[in-house]
Amino acid sequence: MSSTLSPKSNVSFESEKVSEGSSSGFLGEFVQETLALTRRLFIQLQRRPSTLIAGVIQPLIWLILFGALFQNAPKGLFGNDTNYGQFLAAGVIVFTAFSGALNAGLPVMFDREFGFLNRLLVAPLASRYSIVFASAIFIITLSAVQTIAIIATSAFLGAGLPDILGLSVIATIILLLVLGVTALSLGLAFALPGHIELIAVIFVTNLPLLFASTALAPLSFMPKWLQFISSLNPLSFAIEPIRYLYLHSDWSLGSVVMQAPWGNVSLGGTLLVLLLLDVAAFLSIQPLLRRRFA
């Protein structure tokens, strides 16, 4: 506000006050603040689209390179008359959505470090879950774009295409996974001291969870101890049903999608587990959101 600018000398600051508490109630307020926070994320994306572009290209590279790596694996190795491309699609879809959600906390952490988060914390938000929901809506949209790109590319590479109902189950699975992981990542962004620590956590979580899941190889390939870990890994609970939908046109909620060493899991069972994980994630971050940064 140097010489270039001096405000009108006799500005009038009206003295009448905003009426107390708007009439819209909790839900109206919550929707208003959530949409505004979501809008910010989309404006950022629109002006800095590189993350989206990279986010779409990366899984496609996965598909093509990983697919090529195991192209000559004997047919049948990954299940009856399945080629690796068909097998891999489910793993790449889930892993891509998972990685995106796991990184959801980073922008919030940077907001914290730059003091922007204080702007939200001093505001009379209906609930700080609006911060979580805004991030979740944003990540879900990104994941949807990525998932569509992966499904289309896989179809092109010969993995086939589940029917509409199957696709909507896939969408539900991705939705459940992203919601829970986004919530946990945001919880970490509120709890950890800084972005270095958050990146460290993301780093030690991301790839190990991938390798200890059924994304790249079926349970039957693994040594017993890894089978146990893999079949308890939430990622497997998202990958296996999607894979089943890819490989079977006749399916129901009762179809057994994972034969874990400790028992069989049905399609409905995986959905239920993912839902419970979401509930647990949202409940567990509540104290972090509520606590004042004291």
């Binding site: 905003v18 708007s22 819209s24 109206g28 307020e29 208003q32 603040e33 949409l35 505004a36 926070l37 809008r39 910010r40 702007r119 939200l120 505001a123 009379p124 938000l125 209906a126």
Partner: peptide
């Protein structure tokens, strides 16, 4: 605009 929404104007 963001600020206005955070204060529910």
């Amino acid at each position: 605009q963001l600020q206005a929404a955070l204060y529910h104007l």
